[in-house]
Design a protein around this nucleic acid. Structure first.
Lengths: 293, 293
DNA sequence: ATACAGTGATCAGACTTTCTTACCGGCCAT
DNA sequence: ATGGCCGGTAAGAAAGTCTGATCACTGTAT
């Protein structure tokens, strides 16, 4: 029904007009003159109306003059889109939505993102944080493209790339009897007021599991947890990265018997692929941790 | 440098998404499934990034999802332009600029234009009037596409199609001695107060030329001329079409010895071609006068 | 006046792109 | 297992596009 306007012939018309002739246009388009001539003729036939006057010189018909600005507009839009897509693919511009668990978001991401935007100044990043399960949901649901988290359960639809191990330790106030220790075994904690938190299930399956049964509270919110620790009500276990260093009165003592670690890594959709910008981010993160860890 | 996005492959992507598969899209596009498949692959290679996930089902990649609305937009604009140009060519819409000498503009054009817009309801017409020379200039300069006028001088760059002949007669007030005549010869005018006007040079070269030497005034403005005639100051000669019938006191008496006629016709650029809308107008006018005269 | 340098148009052949037909391998439900 | 559906692949036909050589025309300079 409607004729398809290809971009090349339109470009020919444009070139003929502003180069002032078929030969000049051909030179400008790196084509031969017959190619230009035939492209125009083909276009004219498709439209059913000549664009250039027949007699000698390259003068537009009234219909051609009518078409010219419209051709120019379509070409402009085509080129804009083409450029935009290429830029996306080449990771020169774009947007990455990602998520991370709070400890990573606050302790790892600032440097990481800073370095990232140094290398990719035109890429934009959105980062949200949440607990490991929330991050997993976001990635699985496609709401973010990448997650930085620890993996609790295997999921066939998700790819997990381990990046770093994060050892669990005991956190207490500086005046606590255990505060001076260099390292601790789990037996030393028996009888203490232990506060459970969101990371406590790391101990499940380890030798320290019996401690969980003793815990008096279960506080998931980090602010509340630190408040309780600072007030000296009890102690807790946390991975080192999750230990809030900015609280002067809190101490972190590595747990060495048993050693318990969580594995932090990059979570991405397994079946779906990533946007070019997210690919850049993925490569950057893996490279960054490949160097340091 | 930048890849050329052809419309067809983009349409394929669109069809695949909203038909929900390659086969369905192929049916919708009246192509075979491999054609669709290959078109997409070609496009992906050109962009350097897959649009659809590789695993089985037709699911867009994030990049594909990013592209989709942009493809849709480009296609929409392409189709809009294509439709618009076809409508122009088929004379369904458009605009004609034309000019006519006042007598034609006021006595012929009203009916003509009315009939024209009946047949071409979506075509717009601009009409301006002016004397024959002005009309010729407008057509020659390309400011209007068509002129309705009489041709004074041959011009190689202009085509003139005769449409009607317009006989010159004598115009006088109803109480003038000549007013009762059915027809007149030029000798009957000798000794009368003759007012020249813009059409008087029609008499040049005819037997009645001696009259011009006797003329007392030369009034080019029609309003002034009729005022003088109505006041009974003198008489003049006019082609019948230029005779202002709305003045009850004026009479038109055909000049039969010699018969002097002007030839009114359609003036159009000879070298340049016409816009589709103007072509419709030209054909319409020639057809209309072919019937009646 | 003649020759010439410029224009765009034309044609045959090579090349590229695009389509169709026929077939393959994977997946899912019966 | 098997039939039906999916999309991908291969080979050949068809259509489109480019080049190089050549033509016809025009205006200009000799």
């Amino acid at each position: 029904m409607l004729p398809e306007l290809k971009i090349q012939p339109l470009r020919c018309v444009l070139a003929i007009v502003d180069a002032g002739g078929f030969h000049a246009a051909a030179r400008q388009l790196h084509r031969t003159q017959p190619a230009v001539s035939m492209a125009v003729r083909e276009l004219e036939q498709r439209l059913g109306e000549p664009l250039f006057e027949k007699g000698g010189k390259s003068v537009l018909t009234p219909f051609g003059a009518y078409c010219l600005p419209r051709f120019r507009e379509l070409i402009t839009q085509h080129d804009r889109l083409s450029r935009e897509l290429v830029a996306q693919v080449q990771q020169q511009v774009g947007h990455v939505d990602m998520a991370a668990v709070p400890s990573v978001a606050s302790r790892v991401m600032p440097r990481l993102l800073n370095d990232f935007i140094q290398r990719h100044p035109a890429l934009r990043v959105s980062l949200q944080d949440g607990n490991a399960d929330f991050v997993r949901q976001l990635v699985a649901g496609g709401e973010v493209e990448l997650g930085l988290t620890s993996l609790w359960q295997k999921d066939d639809d998700l790819d997990f790339t381990p990046l770093m191990r994060d050892a669990v330790g005991v956190v207490c106030r500086d005046d606590h009897p255990l505060a001076g220790q260099e390292a601790l075994g789990w037996e030393a904690l028996q009888g203490q007021v232990l506060i459970r938190n969101g990371t406590s299930r790391l101990l499940e399956g380890s030798d320290a599991e019996p401690l969980l049964a003793e815990s008096a509270f279960d506080i998931s919110n980090m602010i509340s947890l630190t408040a309780m620790l600072v007030s000296g009500i009890g102690i807790t276990t946390l991975p080192r990265l999750a230990f809030p260093e900015e609280y002067e009165r809190l101490r972190f003592i590595p747990l060495v018997d048993p050693r318990v670690e969580r594995e932090l890594g990059l979570l991405r959709p397994g079946r779906r692929s990533l946007s070019p910008a997210a690919q850049a981010m993925e490569a950057f993160i893996i490279e960054a941790f490949g160097e340091t860890g």
